[in-house]
Nucleic acid binder design. Structure first.
Lengths: 339, 339
DNA sequence: TCTTAGGGTGAGAGCGCTCTCGGGTCTATC
DNA sequence: GATAGACCCGAGAGCGCTCTCACCCTAAGA
C-alpha cells in the first residue's frame, strides 16, 4: 500500500473506468449505472479514497462550505465568547451540514473590517453564508455582492431572512405579566441599534400602551452586567416595580442578582420574563420564565435554504416565539389578584 | 470593468510581470523586490484581486484553514449548543487566525462517526486541528494520521496538548473551602470517562485526603441538570454538608438551585466553588466563586502552535487554574471559624 | 578581459477534480 | 432493415494557483 493519497485517477484505474465515470458515481450524478457504480464504489472502499475538496472547489467553482458571519461590535471577538446565542446557531446548523457533507466556516469580523471581509469571503464562492449577527446595511451589502445569503436577524427587505416574532414575543411577555396581576412592568432593552432589540422594544411599548400600563425602561447591552445595572437603575427610579421584561436572558441573570440584592423576592415581589431561552435561563436562581427564540430551528432552516440553491430575494421564514414558564413568574395560583 | 473575478494572471498582466512574480509578492516570499513589488501591489489594489483559496490549496497542497474538532458524545450535537466551553475556544482562536488569514472550520462529530470524520478532515491537508473535546484514543488516532494536531484536553503523552492544571485547580478549590472553615466538603464530579473530569476528581480526592476531611461525592454530566440532581442526592445523604466543590460552573448552577430549594443559604450554610469561570458563573445567584480555566488563552496558544508548523510530539504547554472569588463563598471575615 | 557566483525573473508543469462534448451502443419506431 | 432517439461512457480541456528550474543580468574576483 502506497503512502500517497489515492486520487480519483487511481479509483478509475482500479475500477476500470474513466475518471469521468468515477466522478459521476462518487458525486452521485446520473449517467453511470448499475455494474459500473458498484465497481467504482468497491474501488473507493478498497483504496480508502477521499475526494480532495480543494480540487473539487477549483474545478466546480464552488466550495462545499457554508460561512457563518458574526459581526463583532467593538474590539475583539465581542459576544462570540460569552453569549450563548452563537453556540446555538452553530449547533442548529451542524446536523444539516453534516448530512450534506458541507463544511462550516466561522468568521467573527469586526465592524470596521467587515467590508473587506465580505470581499474575501465572497471570493471563495461557498454554498452561502448564514448571517448570525450583522447590521442591516452590512447584510444588504453582503446580499448585493453574493445572493447566497440568509440573515438570522431583522434586516432590509431584500435580504432573505429567518424571521422570529420578536415584537410578538415581547408583547406576549408583557401580556403574561399582566395576566399574572402585575401592573408596574418595567423593561430592560437591548442596545438601541440592535435590530432584534428594537423589535422587542416595540413589542413592549405596544403592550404597555394597549394594556394602559405605566412605562419604565432602561437600556442594557445584551450582557449580564448591562442587565444588572439597568435593573438597579430601574428599581432606584421606581421602587414599586413589580415585574420586569428583560430582552435577553443574560441580562435577566444580572437583573435577578440586582433585584434579590435589594431584598426583594422573585417572583413574589418582582416577576421576571426573559427572552431567548438560552442556557442562561436555567442558570439563574430562580430559573427564568422566558420567551423562547427557536435559534437552532432557525439556523437549521437557514442552512437548508442555502443548500437548496440561491434563496429568493426577500424570502422570509417565520418562527414563533413562545412562552416557557419557569420560576421567575408566579404560578397562577400564587399570582397577585388583579386590581 | 469586467464582471468576472480577476485572477493572478490579470494581476501579472496589469503589473507587467510574470505570474510567478505576482505570486511571490502576493504571498510575501523573497525573490522579488522593490519596484516590482510596488507594481504588483498596485495592480492588486486596482483590480480588487482576491486570491482563490481553492486553487491555492490545490497547488500548494495545504488548505489555509484550521479545524476545530468537538466530538459529541451521544446523539445530536451534544454539548456544542449549550456548554459555554466551545464558544470560548472559538473566541480564543479567532483573533490569531484572523491575523494569519487562515479560516476556521468547525466539526461537531459523533463519537461513532469520529473515525470516518478523521479521514475526511485529514484528507483536506489543513494547517492543523484543534481538538476542543475528544477522547484520548481518538486524539491519538488523529495524531497518528496527521501530526498537525493539538489537544485542548488531557490525552495520551504523544499528542501535543495545552495542559491546564485541572488537578491543582480542584485541589486549590478544596483548600480554599477548608481555609474558609468548611469541613464537610462534598464534590460533584463530571462524567467518569471525561479526562478533565477525571483530573478534577483526582485533585479533590488528594485534597480531602491531605486535609483529612470526610469524602462525599456524586457524579454529574457537566450539565445543569446533572449538577442539580447530584446536589439533591448529596444533601439527602448527608444533610450536614457545608461546602461543595463542583467540577463545572454549569453543574454548579444546578447545584445552587437545588441547595437553595432546601432552604439553605449560599454561602453561609453551604459554600460553593465551581470550575471554569464560564459565563454560567456570573449568571447564578449568588455569582460563583470558581476556578478559572483560561480557555481562551489555551485556544489561542494552540492555534499559534499549529500556525508555527508541525507541533513536536508530546509538546505540552501548561496553564494555571486560578481562584476567582465571588459570592458563593463567604468573605474571610464572615467565614466560619475553624474548629 | 574572462569567469564565476548570485540574485532576480519568467516559462511551464502540474495539483486533483469537474464537466462538456462527441462517439458508441442499444432499443423503439416506421 | 433503416433511422431516430435515448442512454452510457471516455477523452480532454481547463479551474487558478504554486513552485521548480533554467535563464539572464550584474558585479566581484582572477
Amino acid at each position: 500500500m502506497s503512502k500517497v493519497k489515492p486520487t480519483i485517477e487511481d479509483v478509475a484505474r482500479v475500477a476500470g473506468v474513466s475518471r469521468a465515470t468515477a466522478s459521476r458515481v462518487i458525486n452521485n450524478v446520473p449517467g453511470a449505472s448499475g455494474p459500473l457504480r458498484a465497481r467504482v464504489h468497491a474501488a473507493v472502499a478498497e483504496l480508502g479514497y477521499q475526494p480532495n475538496e480543494a480540487a473539487r472547489a477549483l474545478a466546480s467553482g464552488r466550495l462545499r462550505a457554508v460561512d457563518v458571519i458574526a459581526v463583532t461590535y467593538g474590539p475583539g471577538v465581542g459576544w462570540l465568547g460569552t453569549h450563548p446565542y452563537f453556540s446555538r446557531v452553530l449547533a442548529g446548523m451542524m446536523p444539516v451540514l453534516e448530512g450534506a457533507r458541507v463544511q462550516l466556516r466561522l468568521h467573527a469580523v469586526g465592524l470596521a473590517a467587515a467590508g473587506d471581509a465580505i470581499d474575501e469571503i465572497t471570493a471563495d464562492a461557498t454554498v452561502g453564508a448564514v448571517l448570525a449577527d450583522i447590521t442591516p446595511d452590512l447584510a444588504a451589502r453582503f446580499h448585493r455582492r453574493c445572493r447566497r445569503v440568509v440573515s438570522m436577524v431583522p434586516t432590509a427587505a431584500s435580504v432573505p431572512a429567518m424571521q422570529a416574532d420578536n415584537v410578538g414575543g415581547a408583547y406576549a411577555a408583557v401580556e403574561e405579566l399582566h395576566r399574572l396581576g402585575r401592573r408596574r412592568i418595567a423593561a430592560i432593552h437591548g442596545p438601541a441599534s440592535n435590530p432584534c432589540a428594537i423589535d422587542r422594544r416595540i413589542g413592549y411599548q405596544r403592550a404597555v400602551h394597549d394594556l394602559a400600563l405605566p412605562r419604565a425602561s432602561a437600556d442594557g447591552d445584551f450582557h449580564r452586567d448591562g442587565g444588572h445595572h439597568a435593573a438597579q437603575r430601574l428599581l432606584r427610579e421606581d421602587p414599586d416595580i413589580d415585574a420586569m421584561f428583560v430582552a435577553c436572558d443574560l441580562m435577566a441573570a444580572g437583573a435577578v442578582q440586582a433585584i434579590t440584592a435589594t431584598g426583594r423576592r422573585i417572583p413574589d415581589d418582582v416577576s421576571i420574563v426573559g427572552f431567548d431561552d438560552s442556557i442562561a435561563a436555567v442558570c439563574t436562581n430562580p430559573p427564568l420564565t422566558t420567551m423562547r427564540l427557536p435559534v437552532e430551528d432557525m439556523a437549521a432552516a437557514a442552512t437548508r435554504l442555502l443548500l437548496d440553491g440561491v434563496p429568493a430575494a426577500g424570502h422570509r421564514q417565520r418562527f414563533p416565539v413562545e412562552l416557557v414558564t419557569r420560576d421567575s413568574t408566579p404560578t397562577p395560583a400564587r399570582a397577585k389578584p388583579a386590581r
